[in-house]
Design a protein around this nucleic acid. Sequence first.
DNA 1: GTCTATAGGGGGATAGAC
DNA 2: GTCTATCCCCCTATAGAC
Lengths: 210, 210
Amino acid sequence: MAKSKEAKKLDTSTEEKIKNAARTVFHKKGYAATRTRDIAEEAGINLALLNYYFRSKEKLFEIIMFETLFGFMQNLVMVMNDEKSTLEKKVELTASNYIDLIIKEPNIPIFMLNEIRNNSGGLLEKLPIKQLVMNSAFINQHQKAVADGKITEPNPLHFLMNLLGLVIFPFIGKPLLQGIGGLNDTQFNKLMQERKKLIPVWIKAMMKAK
Amino acid sequence: MAKSKEAKKLDTSTEEKIKNAARTVFHKKGYAATRTRDIAEEAGINLALLNYYFRSKEKLFEIIMFETLFGFMQNLVMVMNDEKSTLEKKVELTASNYIDLIIKEPNIPIFMLNEIRNNSGGLLEKLPIKQLVMNSAFINQHQKAVADGKITEPNPLHFLMNLLGLVIFPFIGKPLLQGIGGLNDTQFNKLMQERKKLIPVWIKAMMKAK
DNA sequence: GTCTATAGGGGGATAGAC
DNA sequence: GTCTATCCCCCTATAGAC
């Protein structure tokens, strides 16, 4: 037990270094524009090692892509499946968690959505996202709120689109929005912090709109 | 006059055919993943002709990128600068115009935002987007509505992020959202049509939220 | 203007020494 | 496990015939 995983003393085995570098470069440039030489350089190792550990650029990418997508969706799925929290709390947590996450890793949304478009080997089908979301506590609570007349728009997909759009879009459109507003990164991030509190208020107002 | 532009009889000069093909392929795959051979094939011409007319892949891309970005922003800028229309009407028009436009050209948003991220030669600085938006009738009307107590959140950038997020995000996240909801293209587009009417109602509710 | 043929270089992957 | 050197294919761009 102490033996098989001993490479993990200070967390950075060579394999891990390569994966970290690959994550950085893939997230920043996307699959097509990334050269394996970039990854090797970023990792501070030789190009041959990359193929020694991962066989090919494509295999390495699949691993990074899966982990990225899984990690990103996990957050949403866990919040949405919590039976103890109210609908309002779920909105609050989703906004707060994702805004923190994306400020730390700003390239993830555009990377993910762009590579999904290029159909990364039907990766989406490998994750049971549909079941996890459509059978969640969120869906039940939403349905009940509709029945109780507390939400006017009955389709939960509109609700999800609105929530994710308000949270994620500003980051995807960041260069454009910074250009329009004349904001530097600090000012932009400050706006995003404000949105943690604003989005739940807005969503609540939208729910009752008609 | 009848002479100089005679190539435009039936609109498809060779140069135009290449540009149309380039637009299609670039929009679909992005710059890095596009091969000039793909464009030549799509245009039904020989690879050498592409370089004869446009010198290089990069020059051709710059033209397509500029036209795409300009065309996309023009719509927003024109609506936002109309002094005759109310704030509500501007929201309605923006939602309606962009939903129609993006249903016709679904790849434009993710293409644009992804290529902007890779900094296409500081293209954004070449367009006076900041002045056109920040000096627009929209900004004046927004400011006035804030002063009159009709809008609670004073920053017009939040307003813009919300509007564009509600309109554009569903298209960017389309594969993900279709996966979650189990929708085919027809069902998805129907949802988007619904949003033409829903978004103005939602935005109005958000404006007064506090 | 449009084609065929090819030069030239970049990038993924591997052989083989250590 | 890690490196250097190299193979080889693919892609952009150009030369040159028609």
